[in-house]
Amino acid sequence: MSEAVLEVSRLRKGYKNHPVLKDVSFALEAGTSTALVGLAGAGKSTLIRTLAGLEVPDEGSVSLFGSSNEKELCRARRQTGFVLETPFGYENLTVLQNLIHRASLYGRPDMARIKELRKEMRLTERDHVGVKEKLRLLSLGAEKRYSLACALIPKPRLLILDEPLTGIDKENQRFLTDQLIRLREEGVTLLISGQSAAELQTICTRALLLEEGVLRRTVPMEEAVKEETEVAAEEKK
C-alpha cells in the first residue's frame, strides 16, 4: 500500500451554529485521482478551503504528507497546488504580473517556469491573453487556466481543485480535462470537486460522495456515474 499524501480525520466545520462539515474522514494515496462529488451546498468548497488553510476546522485534523501540526502543515502546503472557486491574485495586475507575484511567494521567481506555464495553459498572446491582459478582464475559461497555472508554479505533488470544470465552455472543459489527465499520468495526486461525477469520470478513478456535509460513501468512479444516471432518469420520469 502506498503512502497517504492527504488524511482528513473527523473534520467538523460550521458557521454561526450551522454545521457545514460533519465528521468528514478520508485519505488519499499518492498517485491517485479522486473526485469529490456533491450538490451545491454539500460542503465541497468549505472542505477544500479548510485543506488550503483558509478556514480553521472546529474539530478534527488534516494531515498533508504526514504532517498535521500547524507549522509542518504550512510547509506541506508549499508542495500542494490549490485551485479555488475564485482565482488568487490582484485584479488590477496583468496575468504575467500575477504569475510572477505568485511565484515570488515560493522564492525567487523562475521566469523560464512562468513562460513554460503560460504556454502550457494557453495564457499567451496567441491564445488572446495579452501580456497586458488584466486578471479582472479574463473570461471564466481563461480564469480557470490561470488558476491552474498558479497552482502548478511550485511543481506540486498534490493538486486540489474546487470545481475546475464548472461553468466553462466545452473547449475549455476539454482542455483542462486533458491537462489534468496529463498531470495524473505524471504522478501528481489529484482531488477534484464537482457537482457531477460524469464530468470527472475521465480524470478520476474513485469518488467521495458528499451530502449535506456528511461523507456518505467512497465508490469507484463508474459506480458514481451509474448512480447519477439512474437518479437523473428517475427524476425525468
Partner: peptide
Amino acid sequence: RKRRIGQYLSAGYSR
C-alpha cells in the same frame, strides 16, 4: 478579499 489573502495562506504561510 478571498482571492488576495487566500494566496498567501494556500502558499504555505501561517496565519
